[in-house]
Amino acid sequence: MPALLEVTDLTKVFGGLRANDGISFTVGAGEILGLIGPNGAGKTTLFHCITGFHRPERGTVRFDGRDITGLPPHRIARMGMARTFQTYVAGGDLTVLETAMVGCFSRTASPSRARIRAREILGFLGLADLADLPIRDLPVAGQKRVALATALGTEPKLLLLDEVAAGLNPGEIGELMDAIRHVHEERGVTLIVIEHVMELVMNLSDRVLVLDSGRVIAQGLPQEVAHDPAVIRAYLGEKYAARYLEEASP
């Protein structure tokens, strides 16, 4: 599998805090990579560095064979990398359809063509009924799905999803999972998924990368990672992890 994204030794420092500390990994074309880790592990910072919103102090990001380190976000996006944001709360007056259209405008200048494409994507994500509502009238979970639809409008090769499932009920999580799988299979989009909803990330991902305190502490298949002592320590803390591991081992 050729690497679509190649991150090498990526380091981002805020004041004295190393939010990302020498992170290296690759994502192959067609893969779904889960990105997990406790709060403050540096997941969103990593997204910001990859997509150009932060400029890393050290390290390189290569995408589709080109070095994109330090490029501005819109140039990276135009190369075929889209993302959603952890917090997206709309205050404007755009409707759901119009928001999705803005994504499609990165591929066409024609409003009528953008409108057709946007309707198609909204239908595909089960948002067709909401098309004419102002986006600010949607609950946050709904807004995040609109953000996903908008990102898809750019027809990305790589899509970075930052906690799209937060705040959803189990039924909705199931629907979202189907939708993401659909995106992946039908459109051949490579995905990196930050998620706290383990059910989703463990079921979807081909491979999982675990961050803690800005470093990669484990990577591998979902089942392997779930049983990795280092990961359990990171999530539960030293003391409880020891107890848990004791109980788990026969």
Binding site: T51, F53, P72, P73, H74, R75, A77, R78, A82, R83, T84, F85, Y88, A90, G91, G92, D93, L94, E98, T99, M101, V102, G103, F105, S106, P111, A147, T150, A151, G153, T154
Partner: peptide
């Protein structure tokens, strides 16, 4: 349309290649 999204959310606009 792009402008109206910029007014609402500049970061999102940037992430869409604007």
């Amino acid at each position: 349309y792009q402008l109206r999204l910029i007014k609402d959310n500049e970061d999102m606009a940037r992430s869409l290649g604007i």
